[in-house]
Design a protein around this nucleic acid. Structure first.
Lengths: 223, 223
DNA sequence: AAAATAAGTGAGTGATAACTCATTTTAATG
DNA sequence: CATTAAAATGAGTTATCACTCACTTATTTT
């Protein structure tokens, strides 16, 4: 059974979904744009209809509720966000030793950064949803976190055995990886100016490698 | 003219504001809690009244609109957020040379992390507001960014001259500082589990020092 | 204690927004 | 072209929510 490559998840083409009329496609696109621009609650269904060039009733033809419409937008990305975040380390990559720390970091970030870049709007909508819905957040986390800890854990332990990575507890290492990703995401979503997005990926890899390289500054001084 | 120390901004005691009745104080507290829990739009004024143990009319006695109530909550923090983020480097600290990179990083993060920790709820409300209000975001940024770039810039240049900091463009250095802060903030606001918040400050300083220490991995490799 | 001022109340109001449905328009099929 | 099915429409319904106001209760002043 073949796992799909991460690149296949990029660039959702909403139009290739089954039989979907141009108007329905316009509704999905308008919703995504508006939710990302103004937020879910601040977007009315009449806003969506107007932006999509459609009557309001058309919005409700396929999606029973506004929330269902949001779910439909996020369906493709949520369906694959778990494997993208947590896996990709299970099979081939796990068994192959990482020759260097940089190789490990590159493996982690390359696809994930590209994925984030290709789905900024969707991620923003997810963030808004998850920020104020504790239940949903914990549900998602309980799916992702254990896999991540387990799969990444083995790789990290390998690197530790080879003295290729800093001797921190694994959760701290994971935390710095995540923290770095969050910082990057925030920049994308808030459209912070003065950022050459193009150099981001290389920058992230450089910084992350630097953080995790064993060295003299590794002692975490208490306060 | 004495500038207030950052510690003075911590821990807003809403009750010490002028003449404020217990009920008004309860309204402010309930609003802050609910806005941070459920989000601004998902919180109705009747929710607030109920949580505060007050009639709905009472909410509107002092604050003309729901937005004005939010502004009132954020007033103290927004009044001081600019100096906290951007300054504290203008006078004494700027003139005194930083003996080490760690001293510089510690100076930057200690207060800011403590501030973030003491104002998680407020920051969450601000984030929600700013995330979907481009105008307001740019307005705030245009206030903060130039000061930050200017004041931090001089310090960074000094450290560069002494070869105490990595030879990256200043905006890239600033970006990594910010990115690190964002990552930390995200953890706070999303209440991500498995995080010993107490070690965060020491961790941030360690990591940031490591990132900015000049070394062999400084080349940012293109993709 | 009486008068005056301020604080608090909650039923009521207008507007908005999510959602419905009878009808019309478009597309598919024989 | 006629028939049928699907898609689209937009006026209408219902519920919620921000906000008001005439009135009551508490507090201060004289």
């Amino acid at each position: 059974m073949e796992r799909p490559r991460i690149r296949d998840y990029f660039q959702w083409d909403l139009s290739q979904n089954e039989t979907i009329t141009p108007k329905q496609r316009a509704i999905l696109q308008a919703s995504l744009d508006l939710f990302a621009e103004k937020g879910f609650d601040q977007t009315s269904t009449s806003d969506i209809a107007q932006r999509a060039g459609v009557a309001e009733g058309t919005v409700y033809r396929r999606y029973k509720t506004k929330a269902a419409l949001r779910d439909a937008i996020l369906a493709p990305i949520t369906a694959h966000i778990v494997p993208i975040l947590a896996s990709d380390f299970s099979e081939d990559k796990l068994r192959q030793r990482y020759p260097s720390l940089q190789a490990f970091v590159t493996a982690i970030f390359t696809d994930r950064v590209a994925f984030a870049k290709a789905n900024v709007k969707e991620l923003k909508v997810i963030f808004e949803m998850v920020a104020f819905d504790t239940e949903r957040r914990e549900q998602i986390l309980s799916q992702i976190a254990p896999k991540m800890v387990k799969q990444m854990g083995s790789v990290i332990n390998q690197l530790k055995a080879d003295h290729l990575i800093v001797d921190w507890p694994n959760d701290l290492i994971l935390q710095s990886l995540l923290s770095q990703l969050f910082g990057y995401l925030a920049q994308l979503m808030l459209e912070l100016p003065g950022t050459e997005i193009e150099r981001e990926q290389a920058y992230l890899i450089t910084v992350m490698t630097k953080i995790l390289t064993p060295g003299e500054h590794d002692q975490i001084t208490g306060q």
